[in-house]
Design a protein around this nucleic acid. Sequence first.
DNA 1: CTTAATGCAAAATCTTTGCATGAAC
DNA 2: GTTCATGCAAAGATTTTGCATTAAG
Lengths: 142, 142
Amino acid sequence: MYGTSRRETRSTRQRAAVREALRGADGFVSAPALHTLLAAGGAAVGLTTVYRTLRLFEETGRVDVTRDGSGGRLYRWRPAGEHRHYLVCRGCGASLAVDAEVVERWVTEVMEESGYRAVAHTLELSGWCAECPEEHGSGTAG
Amino acid sequence: MYGTSRRETRSTRQRAAVREALRGADGFVSAPALHTLLAAGGAAVGLTTVYRTLRLFEETGRVDVTRDGSGGRLYRWRPAGEHRHYLVCRGCGASLAVDAEVVERWVTEVMEESGYRAVAHTLELSGWCAECPEEHGSGTAG
DNA sequence: CTTAATGCAAAATCTTTGCATGAAC
DNA sequence: GTTCATGCAAAGATTTTGCATTAAG
């Protein structure tokens, strides 16, 4: 399902465009959204290429990845190798970076104790921000 | 996008079947997989109903939810209000429950400091277990 | 009876692939 | 020139919705 371990990287107009669009985007963006943004901005890039580029960025750690409520992937440019987690408002989508040092350390511990190698983690926090009226409960957990 | 706040719950053959199938399932299962399992077990339930029932269970906190590598949802029955996190092998799928008390406490802290209400969290850990040969790197993070 | 729940078929999404063309190096 | 990258069209897959029917309470 995944490509080769070998990974060529040619610099193309499209990849630059996707990178810039990601940088310009406010919070997390979906691939289809980016595709639309790019088209609107005059630097049209094929949807397929958007997907392939995002996957490339993901594999090389240049973006943070989250999931929206329905299973879609959301991407966010990751400045300078940084690794962050966000608290996203379920009402308005506003995202707030949080300090997850505790979690990072905990993950390392788990890795050592479990004997599993290359342990990666995904952490998603969502809630209702001060401005948004709560509508209903939800108790997702994984 | 979500339904009403009001939530009737009628006990039907289908819901019982989905619940039992979930209980019987080993680890995390997808909706389509459950649908197939049910059909194979003689207690056929419409795919639509499987989806609706799983969403109901999710909203009432009766299942844990994760995502597979491609954005699909995976469900796992949650025994007695318990809340667990798992470390899943990317090779063979074996899952290992881990103690995430640290994270739980951290989430509470974040909630208090941020002012967000009803903060829910999803935490996914994946790695390569001792038996599985590593194949390639991956650095997802959200 | 009343109203929620079911399930089929169909739609809407999101994501990946096949394959010929075009661009990097 | 070679080989990777692009992009269209098409296929796959997952999840949601419309609507008539069934069944729980």
